[in-house]
Design a protein around this nucleic acid. Sequence first.
DNA 1: AGAGATTCGGACAACGTTGTCACCATGTGA
DNA 2: TCACATGGTGACAACGTTGTCCGAATCTCT
Lengths: 325, 325
Amino acid sequence: MVDVATRAGVSLKTVSRVVNNAPHVQPELVERVLAAVAELGFRRNHLASSLRSGQATATIGLLIEEIANPFYATIAGTAAEVARQRGTMLIIASSEEDPARERQLLRDMCARRVDGLLVVPAGDDHSFMRAEVELGTPVVFLDRPAGGLLADTVLLDNRGGARAGVRRLVEAGHRRIGILLDSIGVYTMRERLDGAQDALAPAGAPYDTRLVRDGVRDPAAAARVVSELLDRPDPPTAFFSLNNRITLGVVEELHRRGSDAALLGFDDFDMASLVPYPLTVIAYDTRELARTAAELLFRRIEGDRSWPRTVVLPTKLVDRGIPPR
Amino acid sequence: MVDVATRAGVSLKTVSRVVNNAPHVQPELVERVLAAVAELGFRRNHLASSLRSGQATATIGLLIEEIANPFYATIAGTAAEVARQRGTMLIIASSEEDPARERQLLRDMCARRVDGLLVVPAGDDHSFMRAEVELGTPVVFLDRPAGGLLADTVLLDNRGGARAGVRRLVEAGHRRIGILLDSIGVYTMRERLDGAQDALAPAGAPYDTRLVRDGVRDPAAAARVVSELLDRPDPPTAFFSLNNRITLGVVEELHRRGSDAALLGFDDFDMASLVPYPLTVIAYDTRELARTAAELLFRRIEGDRSWPRTVVLPTKLVDRGIPPR
DNA sequence: AGAGATTCGGACAACGTTGTCACCATGTGA
DNA sequence: TCACATGGTGACAACGTTGTCCGAATCTCT
C-alpha cells in the first residue's frame, strides 16, 4: 500500500480511501491510485483489514459430519450460496461424528474470528462454546439440537414425520414392522424411533424390540439384517429404515428376494423413482433447512439480539405405494 | 494477551512464548500463564498471528463448480480430510460455471492470503492468476486444465476412458451410437467426445453428427432426447451418455420404453447396481483425483519449487453387460 | 473583504500478535 | 577473581490496514 501511495504520489491514507471507495477523494487522484494499484498488482490484505477494523472477517464456519454425504453436501451448497449473496466466504470442516474433533475444529474456527458458526452438532455437550457465544460469536445449530447451550436451532420434524409414515403402514394393516437404524446415539434416530412408537402404540401393535435393529451402518449391513429378519418364523410384513443409506440396502435385499414387504424410508433420494421397488419415503427440504439456518445466522451477525429461537421444519410423506399386509 | 500477562504477572512476550510453546520458559511460569489463559478464556487471534508472522494462514481455498453435486462433494470431502491432517482449514466456494464469478472468488481467496488454491477451472483463461502464482501462492488445477497458465494439473484420462468404452460398444456390433453431452464448452466433454471418435473411426463407423446431442443439462432433457433419437427411422442401437446426470435420464427413458439399446455412461454412481437396466460405465476414483491434487498442493506449500507437473489418472471400464446389436 | 463552512489530504496511533535484540541473573572454567 | 557462556525474560518494533483528528485549501455568504 505504501508502494502504491509512492507511485501515485499520494499518502497512504488516500490509497486506503480509494481502495475502500470512501467519499471525498478527487476523481483525478482516484484514477492515479487505481492505475498504481493495477500496475503493481496490489491486492488488499484482508487479514490486516479485519484485524484493524475489529470485526467482520466476512467468513462464516460450517461444521458438519461428513462433506461427501449428499445431505450435508446440499447443506454446504446452500450455506455457501447464502454466504456468497452476503459477500461472505465459507470455511467447512467435518467432525466425522467425533465430539473431540468437533470441539477442536470449532475452537480453530473461533480463533480465525469467523463472524458466525453453523453447526450440526456431533457431541451432546456444547457448553464449552458458551464463552464464545457470550463474547458475541453467533451460532446456529441445525438438524440436531445443541447440548447444554441455549442457541438458535433449526430442526426437522423427525418425530412427526416418522409418526405419519408408520401410521400409514399401520393403516395398511401392518403390525410387525422391522425398524433399522444407524445409531441410537444420534438425536435424529431417537426422534424417528419415538415417532414410530407414537404410531404403533394406539394401534395396539406390539413394539417388538426384536424387530428393531441398531448399528446398521451401511447398505450391506442393512441387507444382512433384512435377510435375517425375513428368515424369522414370524417375519415382519413391513420395514421402516431410518435413513437413506439403510434404505438402499433394504431395497436391494427385498428386490433380490422378490419379497412383497412394504418399505418406508426416512430421507428421500434422487433416484427413488428408479428404484425397482415401491418405496414410500418421509421427505423434507434439505435446502430449506440450510437456508433457514443460514439466514437466521446472518440476522444474528447483523445484530439481532432477540431471544434464541427453535424452528422446526415439516416433513412430507411421499407415497409411492404401500403393499397391504 | 496483555490481560493474561498482567494476571499471570509476566510480560506480554512470555505469554506469547507459552501460547506457542516455545522453549526456555520456567515450568512454574508456564503453569501460571496457562492458568490465566484458562481463567480469562483467552484464545489467540489467528488473524493477528498470521499477519505478523508473514505466511501460513493454515488455510487453503477450494474452488469447484457446485458443492451439492456428488462429484464435487467427494472432492471437497477428500480435500478437507487431507487439509485436516495438515492442521489446515478449507475455504470452499462454487463458481457455478461462471468465469467472472470464478475470478472474483479466486481474488477474494487470495486477499485472504490462503496458503494455496485447489481449482476446478470454469473459465478458459486463467492468466489473471499469473501475478498471484508468481508471488508465491501455489495453485493446483484439477479435473480440467487451466488456460494460459503453467501450473500443476491433475486430470482424468477422459479420452482414453471414452475410447475404451466405445470400443466395447463397437466390438458388440454397435455402429449407430447416440451420444448425449452437457456442453461442448466444457473440457471434459470435448475429451470424451474425442475418445468416442477415436474408437469409431477405425471401425469405419460413421460419425453421425445427427446422433450427437449437445446441451443436455438434466435427466428430463436426456429422456426427451433419447425418445427423439429412438423415433428416428434409423434409431441408434446404443447410447453413450457423457455424465451421470444424463445417464440417469437415459436409463429412465430406455426402461420406460422397454428398449434393448446398449447403454454406456461416463461416471459411475452409487446405485448403478440397483438401476433397472444393464449399465456399463467408465468409472474413476474421485477421491484419488482429489487426494493427488491436495497432496501436490501441500508439497508446493512446503516449498517444492520443481517444474509444474501434469498427472493423468486412469479410468476403468465397469462392464455390467452390453446387449449386442 | 472577511468570517465561517466545506472539502479533502496526511500524520499518527492502534488492532493482536511475534521476531529481534538486549538485558539480567546464574553457572563455568581459567 | 574475572571473563564468558547460558538460560530465562522483557522492551520494542513491525506485520498491513483503518479510525481519528488536524490543518490546508477552497468556497460561500454577507
